[in-house]
């Protein structure tokens, strides 16, 4: 195992994150604050409570998930797409580094960034609303698993993408809508019954629900189903990545 290489990739990627601190750190704080002002304060003042929780607090897990999923995906995809785009990938491919080590470096860094942003949003949220976390260990577990699995998804997209447009396509057109429609800002039980069924096909529902359970103790779907969902998603991503590495798809023509 070439730990030195994993470290090199990881810190090289993290350096990019800290170099663009404004973009990586300040923008999620500002957008989260805006969500709280608009959804929490303005709309929330007209909604009494959702499942016994104030609306402002209710949306916190969904807001964190929204940012964590989009950030993990875009960081994961950009990290590997950029070397591909500018050609520096030659260095990774000709170094004594296994695919697993490359993956560990890039996905590790992307997941760390997303986790960092998630925690920043949590801290920002705590300023606006009164928050209690009922199951902190489960909360961290869900958060970390989400960061890793979506960074893996991003990594796959980064390898798949042939241009910047494709790179943005999935985060914008798939991940964001799925998160918005995945019960981030509402409880599934608030939907008409037909939509309650349809929404169960949205994988994000399970993640948001499980994450919300770790905060408030109630969920749209049973907690073990949520755990199963996030674990299966991670496994699927790992299988795809393994296939990419074995075939050299879009890396080694």
């Amino acid at each position: 195992m070439n730990f030195q290489a994993v470290k090199a990739i990881y810190f090289f990627e993290m350096a990019r994150f800290f170099r663009t601190l404004l973009q990586s750190f300040v923008s999620p704080v500002i957008s989260t604050s805006l969500y709280f002002v608009v959804f929490g304060t303005v709309i929330g003042s007209r909604i009494q409570e959702v499942e016994g929780i104030s609306y402002g607090a209710f949306i916190v897990p969904g807001l964190i998930m929204l940012s964590v999923m989009t950030q993990a995906t875009s960081n994961g995809s950009f990290g590997i797409y950029f070397p591909k785009f500018i050609g520096t990938i030659y260095e990774l491919l000709s170094a004594p580094v296994s695919y697993f080590e490359i993956l560990l470096g890039y996905v590790g860094a992307a997941a760390t960034k997303a986790l960092f942003i998630g925690l920043v949003i949590l801290a920002t949220a705590a300023v606006f609303v009164d928050l209690k976390i009922m199951h902190p260990v489960a909360m961290i577990l869900f958060l970390v698993l989400t960061c890793i699995s979506f960074a893996l998804l991003g990594f796959i997209l980064g390898i798949w993408a042939r241009n910047f447009e494709q790179l943005q396509l999935v985060p914008l057109l798939v991940v964001t809508p799925l998160v918005f429609l995945g019960g981030s800002f509402y409880s599934v039980s608030m939907l008409p019954s037909i939509w309650q069924t349809i929404t169960l096909f949205n994988p994000v529902v399970y993640l948001v629900s499980g994450f919300r359970w770790s905060f408030f103790g109630n969920a749209d779907v049973p907690i073990f189903v949520s755990l199963l969902a996030i674990s299966s998603f991670t496994v699927v991503c790992v299988i795809i990545v393994a296939w990419i590495f074995n075939t050299g798809w879009r890396i080694k023509q």
Partner: peptide, 21 residues
């Protein structure tokens, strides 16, 4: 093929790291 925003020293240390050194 070089990362335009990187510093010379960082990009060189990165290369050495990739080789496990």
């Amino acid at each position: 093929t070089l990362e335009p925003f990187e510093k010379v020293l960082n990009t060189i240390n990165f290369s050495r790291g990739l080789f496990g050194r």
